[in-house]
Every structure is written in structure tokens, then in C-alpha cells.
Simulated scan of single mutants.
Amino acid sequence: MRRAAWLWAAAVGAGSLLVLWSVAQRWASADMKGMPAAYAEGGMVAGGLQAVALAALAGVVAVLATKGAGRQVVGAVIALCGAGLAVLVWRGVTDAGLSAWARGEALLMGLSGYTYTVMPLWPSVAAIGAALVLAGGVAAVVRGRSWGGMSARYRREAGPSEVKGERAIWDAMDRGDDPTR
């Protein structure tokens, strides 16, 4: 494979891993009267991030294993994963998403009043990861055909070869050919 394909794979893989890393970090806190603060991890306020990031990571392997139009189709799926990640991150830090989470936390604790605060570092990291995945998917669609395929070094040849001589018979058997055909 060409160097460009490996650089692409590293960028998209890094984007997916950034999202996966940020999902387990604190994205928001809710302060409730008379109780210690409750904290929300990314997966609590932006459900689905983990699954979509894992799908994008699997897509990296699929792009490296395919060629031609198949590679472009997988690249399009990766681009859709990147767009989906961006939407999920955005929904996770909007007032509606955070308010629903904080209200749920307050109800679980039997309280009625709460205020919430967004911690911007980890949603920003997830957004950067989503942007890398989206850009990588688009790059695979546009440039993926020129990356070349996996090596054919260990592929078995289609049919048996003609074998002459005792040494050639042993060599054919070592290759997996049947010299009696």
C-alpha cells in the first residue's frame, strides 16, 4: 500500500480514537441544591458516539482491504459516520440535551432545582475527532482508487503449473500444486 493510504488510515483511526477517548470523560456537571455535583460523561449526554466511532474504525480496515469502487463505498460510509459523530457531539452539548440529562439526575435524587455547566474540553476533542473521520471519508471517496490494493504476495495461483523433473515436482508440492494433474 502506498504511504498516502497509511497516513489516511492513521488520521481516521486517530479521529475515531479521539471520539472514543472523549466519550468516557466529563462533558458537563449539574449542581443541585443540597447535594454534591453530578457529572455527565460524553456517553450519557451524547448516546451513540461510541458505536459510530467503532463503525468508523472498522471502516478503516475495510478501506485498506478493498479496491476500486468498493473502497469508495466504504469511504462514503466513513464520511457518513463522521457527519453522524458531529451531529451527536452537537446534540450532546445543546441546552436540550444537557437539560434533559440534568433534569433526569435531579429526579433520581428527588430534587427539583438544578443548574448545569458544560465542560468544553472533551466535547471539543470529540468534535476534532469527528472532523478527522468526516474528512477521511471524503478523502477515501475522492482519492481512494489511487491508493493501490493489498499485496498479492501470498495469494495462491489459479491453476496447477506444468511440472517436469524430480526437483520441480517437489517445488510444485511446496507451492501447494498437485503435480499429478
Rank of each mutant, 00 (worst) to 15 (best):
L107V: 09
L134R: 04
G68D: 15
S112G: 04
A96E: 15
A140R: 00
A79K: 03
G47L: 01
I78E: 07
V45L: 12
V93Q: 12
A37W: 05
Q72K: 15
V142A: 07
G68P: 00
E162L: 15
Q72D: 07
M173K: 14
D171Y: 12
G159F: 13
G148I: 08
R153H: 11
Y154W: 10
G84S: 11
A100P: 00
M109T: 08
Q50R: 02
L107M: 13
V163S: 06
G148C: 07
G68F: 10
G148A: 03
V87G: 05
V141D: 05
D171C: 06
G75V: 08
A130D: 11
V60L: 05
V63I: 13
A102D: 05
A130K: 01
A40C: 03
A131W: 11
A102Q: 04
P120N: 09
I128R: 02
A51D: 13
G149S: 12
E166G: 06
P160L: 00
V73P: 07
L49V: 03
W101K: 14
M119C: 03
R103G: 01
G144P: 08
V61L: 08
A168V: 02
E157C: 03
R91L: 12
V118I: 14
A56E: 13
A69Y: 15
R167S: 09
A53W: 10
L88A: 15
A139F: 13
Q72G: 11
L64F: 01
A76N: 10
G59A: 03
W170F: 06
A79W: 12
M150E: 15
A53V: 04
S112A: 11
A69Q: 08
C81M: 12
L80C: 05
T117Y: 11
R143K: 10
L54D: 02
T117S: 04
V74P: 12
R153T: 15
V77K: 00
Y39S: 05
G159A: 00
V125W: 09
A158K: 13
L54Q: 11
E41G: 04
I78M: 12
M109F: 01
L80H: 01
W147D: 04
Y116G: 02
T66N: 15
L111A: 15
L107A: 10
A83Q: 10
V141A: 09
S161C: 06
G104R: 00
R143T: 08
G92W: 11
L88I: 11
G110H: 05
G47Y: 03
V87F: 02
L107Y: 06
S124I: 05
Q72P: 09
Y114S: 00
L121D: 14
R156M: 15
T66M: 12
R175C: 02
R153K: 07
R155N: 09
A69S: 11
V133T: 10
G136M: 09
A56K: 03
R175Y: 09
V89T: 00
K67I: 01
A106R: 01
A56H: 02
S124K: 08
K67F: 06
A51Q: 14
G92A: 07
G113V: 01
A53R: 07
L80T: 00
L54S: 03
L80G: 06
G92M: 08
R145G: 13
V45E: 06
V163A: 04
A62F: 10
Y114L: 01
G137H: 02
I128L: 15
P123I: 03
Y116A: 05
M173A: 05
A168S: 12
G104W: 13
E166Q: 04
G104E: 13
